[in-house]
Computed example of a mutant assay.
Amino acid sequence: MSSAADLDLARRLADLADAVTRSRFRSRDLHVTSKPDRTPVTDADTAVEDSIRALLARERPEDAVLGEERGGAENPGARTWVIDPIDGTKNFLRGLPIWATLIALVVDGTPQVGVVSAGALRRRWWAARGLGAWTSEGDGAPWRIGVSGVDRLSDAYLSTTHLGSWTEYHSRSAYLALLDACWESRAFGDFWQHVLVAEGAVDLAAEAVVNAWDVAAVQVIVEEAGGRFSDLDGVPDYTGGSALSSNGLVHDAALEVLRSNR
């Protein structure tokens, strides 16, 4: 199966997801429950994942599926679709438009295709190995994206996440040291900060805790845009439990700050 064919399928899966999420966003009858980790899940989350799984069962019946809501497992040595039906569910619940469906195809442990579709923003980002990273807005023509050229951490624009997550899962001092080492910081959060790295608007994005479905798609997008992706220890693996994406030029400097302040 070619990367182009898999990417085409991933984009059709995103179309399917967008149809569900847009119809349920800001709905007055949205049904909300809580998972064992106390994070929220809506009927839109499960409907999106079920729709994606149904289409994959028809078109890629031999492939494994790992999804946030319905579970599953990566199939070592084989093809696995890794799905986050709504990344940013808390935003979705509060009526904030910063959320997206994340779809990745992982082959032999490496993400090969990634699509991030932000239905309320009407933005989409996608990539496949060897085909570059792209974005589109609304019905407009797609354009190729690339990371920034900022080469000093002191000039870098950083996006990161809630201090409490760093205190619990990594290091409060590392969080503060990284902020102090950079020129400016914001907390765009979730998928958005990583695709902003890919399109050169942000130079560095760091998260203390992630799941595989949170970052499998963004890893290939960032890397195909010319950037670098790793966990906070520098391992280039979407399953490491944390995430650091950058333009590549400031990556090692950021890792050194994190290592020195654990």
Rank of each mutant, 00 (worst) to 15 (best):
V106F: 11
Q193C: 01
V209R: 13
V195H: 04
W134H: 12
R172Q: 11
I86C: 06
I103P: 00
G226C: 10
T135M: 10
T42H: 11
P142C: 13
E62F: 07
G241E: 05
V115F: 07
P40N: 07
G241V: 02
S2P: 14
V210K: 00
A254C: 10
L255C: 01
W126T: 04
S3L: 13
V209P: 00
P40C: 08
Q193M: 15
P85F: 10
L196M: 14
F191Q: 01
H251N: 09
E68C: 00
G248T: 13
W125M: 01
P36T: 05
T239S: 10
G226A: 10
A174E: 03
A216H: 05
A253C: 09
G114S: 05
G132E: 09
T46L: 15
A14K: 05
D190H: 15
G71Y: 04
E69L: 11
D45G: 07
V257Y: 01
E224I: 13
S23M: 02
R26S: 12
D87W: 04
L249K: 14
E69Q: 11
M1D: 13
F191S: 00
V48F: 05
G95Q: 08
A225I: 12
A181D: 07
A64P: 02
R172G: 12
S173T: 14
L255H: 00
R122Q: 15
V209W: 14
A141H: 09
L196Q: 13
L16I: 12
R124C: 06
E199N: 13
S3R: 15
P111G: 06
G132Q: 09
G109T: 06
V195D: 01
G88M: 11
R262P: 08
S154Q: 07
P97L: 10
A127W: 06
A17W: 01
M1A: 14
D231M: 01
F25E: 04
S34I: 11
P40R: 08
G138Y: 13
S246R: 02
Q193L: 11
C182A: 12
V82K: 03
L55Q: 15
E223N: 04
E168T: 14
R79G: 00
P36C: 05
G77D: 04
E199R: 15
R60C: 09
D87V: 02
G95M: 11
S246A: 04
L153T: 06
L178Q: 04
W125Q: 02
T101R: 01
A198S: 07
V116M: 04
R152E: 15
V195T: 09
S154A: 15
W166S: 04
T46C: 05
L232W: 02
V115T: 03
G227M: 06
G138V: 09
A141I: 03
T21C: 03
W99P: 00
